[in-house]
């Protein structure tokens, strides 16, 4: 196919996402990467759990499973093990993946099953109206952390790296070119690839945390992300790592034994 937009289910557009929601951007980047791989829709399957992020497969023309909360990866495991020749991409969110689906996530990384997991991390539960998630930053306001979040958040990319995924990277919805390249690298890598896409949720997160609109949120992510090379340099030099910033880029690329990889 020529244009990644041909992968969209035109009869279902426009989608349900709020104004300025970053999920649409991540869909663009993922479809662009899938399109660059030269895959055909009939050989590609998108699988998701529950939440805003997980509505994404419904807007794509391929076969797709919109499953139960947190369980996208085990459903994908069943599909991939029976049909290794199908390309299976999982869309998930921070609540779906790290809270209710946390166990499945680390085990999929351990098994290193040949899936590409794209997580839209918006720091909160968007679909239910902005509750705190395992990725809500310390001090952030959500409907269930009205006095500021007092639990430390998960670093999903580091978690995936520690659990054994073959490819891990993190970008934001500002870094559309880099994110597309990262998803493509993930699709090319045998074994589990995990791409954490930090996205803005102006409705559930931004307006409660002094980031009134999507632009401010995207600017915030742009200004608070530090390229991996620089981050590592800071670490090596023993400089204090800024607490309000996060590294973006490639966390790991390796060749641990993988499951469900199609035979050549």
């Amino acid at each position: 196919m020529k244009d990644f937009r041909e992968w969209l289910r035109e009869d279902r557009m426009p989608h349900i996402y709020c104004t300025g929601c970053g999920n649409g951007t991540v869909i663009n980047c993922t479809l662009n990467a899938v399109n660059q791989m030269g895959w055909e829709p009939e050989n590609t399957v998108f699988i998701s759990g529950i939440g805003c992020s997980s509505r994404a497969p419904g807007y794509i023309i391929t076969d797709s499973l919109h499953t139960t909360h947190g369980r996208a990866i085990p459903f994908a495991t069943g599909v991939k093990l029976c049909r290794p020749d199908l390309h299976v991409v999982v869309f998930t969110g921070d609540g779906d993946l790290a809270a209710i689906g946390g166990n499945h996530f680390i085990h999929a990384c351990r098994r290193n099953i040949d899936l590409t997991v794209v997580c839209m991390n918006n720091y909160i539960y968007g679909m239910t109206g902005g509750q705190g998630s395992p990725c809500t930053p310390l001090g952030a306001i959500s409907t269930t952390t009205p006095y500021g979040c007092d639990e430390a958040p998960f670093d999903l990319a580091s978690l995936a790296t520690a659990a054994g995924a073959n490819y891990v990277s993190r970008w934001t919805s500002y870094h559309v070119k880099e994110l597309t390249r990262a998803v493509k690298a993930g699709l090319e890598t045998p074994g589990l690839s995990f791409i954490e896409a930090m996205v803005q949720c102006p409705t559930g997160y931004g307006r409660r945390n002094k980031l009134r609109d999507a632009r401010l949120m995207v600017q915030w992510m742009r200004d608070h992300s530090v390229l991996m090379k620089k981050w590592k340099q800071m670490e090596a030099e023993g400089r204090p790592l800024p607490e309000d910033k996060f590294p973006v880029g490639e966390f790991v690329r390796r060749h641990r034994p993988a499951m469900g990889v199609p035979e050549e």
Binding site: I47, R71, P74, G78, V79, L81, C82, N103, H107
Partner: peptide, 23 residues
Amino acid sequence: VFVQMEDELASIASVIGASWTGT
């Protein structure tokens, strides 16, 4: 294919996923 999943939630999920491939 035999796969030992991490719990029963995942077991039944994998079975449903597998079924959609016609298996």
